[in-house]
Design a protein around this nucleic acid. Structure first.
Length: 268
DNA sequence: CTGGGACGC
DNA sequence: GCGTCCCAG
């Protein structure tokens, strides 16, 4: 065998070796994502998770979500906000990243660039300030929806602050939130991210005597009306979205709390 | 708190 | 792409 042939063979082996090694690394990375999801799932109180109409559940450590590929955003994001998680840590805002745990491919943040719409958090960054990791995790593109800035910084922000107030007052709450992905919607970006015409939020107090729930449906525009003007029943939201929000909850409790659109048990 | 955009490396 | 600075609701 000539030296030249030998060198050619060695070079070929090196190329193949690199290729195999890269494939190995990629597989390890995928496994890590899957394991993290499984771990997060066991840490999540699954009984309260809504159903996924899109059959794509994603679990992160700080929240779970159901991703709608058709609308390039979550149909719901759900998380527990414990009283002990409320914190005044002031982390630097990271860059938004594509959520690699979304198998169909989460939207790029570039869809939002110069769109005129905010990258509106569904699980608010301020609700996950108990650790840098949890905070950064809210900046995944699976956790955002296009929102008008005056809405996001206005009545939506007010509602998010109210949730933190309730979490403190009632020693923790469960939260489910999202845009209503129905009807005719405008889209933004190359991936056509839908702009919801309404946003909802459900707050569940599970450990303060009798379980109680309050649900809001807000048009996608800012308002100076009081928040209680936007209270609806969970049943109403279920009819609107097709999502079953408390399917794992005891039926008797479920039926009672879902039918109510009263806010008499909630202090504003 | 909720976010945006411009500029330089 | 990342850091820094300045901006508004």
């Amino acid at each position: 065998m000539s030296k030249r042939t030998l060198y050619t063979i060695i070079a070929a082996l090196i190329v193949v070796g690199i290729y195999v090694y890269e494939a190995y690394l990629k597989q390890e990375e995928q496994l890590e994502i899957v394991n993290k999801g499984a771990q997060a799932k066991t840490l999540t109180n699954e009984f309260f998770l809504p159903t996924s109409t899109t059959n794509q559940l994603v679990h992160h450590e700080g929240y779970s979500l159901s991703y709608s590929e058709a609308h390039e955003q979550a149909e719901w994001v759900a998380y527990e906000l414990k009283k002990t998680q409320l914190s005044y840590n002031d982390f630097d805002r990271p860059y938004f990243e594509i959520d690699q745990a979304v198998k169909t491919g989460a939207a790029s943040w570039k869809n939002y660039k110069n769109s005129g719409y905010d990258r509106g958090h569904l699980c608010p960054a301020a609700d996950r300030r108990y650790s840098q990791k949890a905070y950064d995790e809210t900046f995944l593109t699976s956790n955002i929806s296009p929102q008008k800035h005056d809405f996001n910084s206005g009545i939506w922000n007010t509602l998010e602050q109210k949730v933190r107030y309730w979490a403190k007052k009632y020693d923790g709450v469960f939260v489910v939130t999202g845009g209503v992905l129905k009807g005719t919607m405008k889209t933004i970006g190359n991936e056509h991210v839908s702009v919801p015409n309404q946003f909802y939020k459900i707050v569940f107090d599970y450990n303060n005597g009798t379980p109680k729930v309050i649900a809001f449906l807000l048009p996608h525009k800012n308002s100076k009306e009081p928040l209680h003007n936007f209270v609806v029943s969970v049943d109403f939201l279920e009819d609107l979205t097709g999502i079953d929000f408390f399917s794992e909850l005891d039926d008797a409790i479920e039926n009672e709390i879902e039918a109510s659109d009263s806010y008499r048990n909630w202090r504003f």
